[in-house]
Computed example of a mutant assay.
Amino acid sequence: MRAALLALLMALPAQAQTVTEGRGAALRWLDKMSGETADVELSRGQAAVWGRLTIQLDSCRFPADNATSEAWAHLTIRDSVADKAVFNGWMLASSPALSALDHPRYDVWVLRCLQS
């Protein structure tokens, strides 16, 4: 369902927009069992471990003309118990449910890109 919605949104005509690559991203995660949250800033290629998750930031992009309006981050998230990637793709700051981590215990979302 999410993939179909994302494909539909990408197929819609859009105005040409200049996109800038950020030097990193600010992310937030939630442990649904304990209610604990934490924010982290990652540089491109950097990873952070929190609980069972290892979250790696591959890329963060934002509109060049309005950096605060949107952020798209490509993340690779691994679960140490599953020993595999539980998420590998783009997350959108303005629509976290569109392409979300589907995990029974943890939630991760993008807050913004870090600018140079």
Rank of each mutant, 00 (worst) to 15 (best):
D65V: 05
L8K: 08
G22H: 07
L53D: 08
M91F: 05
Q56D: 05
D39T: 14
H103F: 04
L9G: 13
A67T: 12
Y106H: 07
Q17W: 00
P104M: 04
W90R: 04
M1L: 06
D107C: 02
W90I: 14
L114F: 02
G89W: 09
G24M: 06
G24C: 08
V86Y: 04
L114G: 05
Q115P: 00
R23Y: 00
L98M: 13
W109C: 07
A26I: 14
A67S: 13
V40A: 13
C60N: 08
D83G: 02
V108H: 01
A3Q: 02
S43H: 09
C60Y: 08
A3H: 07
V49A: 15
A73F: 04
M91W: 09
A47N: 07
Y106Q: 04
E41T: 15
P63M: 03
V86R: 02
S116G: 13
A82K: 09
L111V: 11
F87N: 04
S80P: 02
A16D: 02
L12P: 03
R28T: 15
L5Y: 03
L101Y: 05
L9P: 00
V19R: 04
S94A: 15
A14G: 12
H103P: 06
T20N: 10
A71I: 10
Q115W: 02
A48D: 12
S116I: 00
A25K: 01
G35Q: 08
C60T: 02
T37E: 15
L101G: 06
L42D: 09
L8S: 06
L101D: 09
L12E: 03
D83Q: 13
